[in-house]
Design a protein around this nucleic acid. Structure first.
Lengths: 111, 111
DNA sequence: GGCATATATACGCGTCAACGAATGTACAGT
DNA sequence: ACTGTACATTCGTTGACGCGTATATATGCC
């Protein structure tokens, strides 16, 4: 399943939002989504993993899920084409970039 | 249909990409998607309109569709939460912002 | 009016996604 | 070895989505 479809599902966005706060075990994620059963959450996690949006690490009998945000780059790349059309939050975004850019600041792009 | 679901469909992303180049009549859009019939494209356009991503304007017997990029802000807002986690293309994005920002308010705060 | 063009809607169908229940698998503790 | 816990997978069902065909609703032109 591609990234766009994976992210289209509200429960899966909720899972990503939870993982944005830090890694979580499968059981914790199940507990955070009371509307869904354990198998349903497990299936969503599989889809997110296959889409490259999360990673799993075993910890005894638990599975620890972590966010893999690079997977969202494809979505961001597509959106970049449209970002020039609205000016909302441009300043705050630019400030954010200035704050969070990597210390190494690679400029190995084109140009 | 919400914005995430609307954008999940590849043909609908193609339609938005076409409209990013400028307004198009429904017929032109149909011609640009040879794999689909006219009714199929018309239905996709309806979904995009109901999701707030395009606007229609009548022109005689034609319907002119225009992009409504603010509709993508919801997607961008959600993505903003994750943008801090990956650094890919930050430089190009920043350059892009510097190029396309509104004529007012230059900040030029890059290190 | 009469006919062609442009676009939208109605309908029926096949496919796919998401669900819960049931079951399987693996690890932990005793 | 046995039992419980944590998680994944299978199965069958249901509902939504996307499609093409056929049809409706304009508008334009003669």
């Amino acid at each position: 399943m591609d990234v766009f479809t994976a992210v289209a599902e509200p429960s899966r966005r909720t899972l990503l939002d939870l993982l944005a706060d830090g890694e979580r075990s499968a059981g914790e994620l199940v507990a955070s989504l009371p509307a869904l059963t354990q198998p349903a959450v497990s299936r969503h996690l599989r889809i997110l993993r296959e889409a490259g949006l999360v990673e799993v690490r075993p910890d005894g009998q638990r599975r620890i899920y972590t966010l893999r945000p690079e997977g969202l780059a494809e979505l961001d790349d597509w959106l970049a084409r449209y970002r020039r059309y609205w000016t909302r939050h441009l300043d705050s975004l630019e400030r954010h970039l200035a704050d969070t850019r990597t210390p190494t600041a690679e400029r190995t792009d084109q140009s």
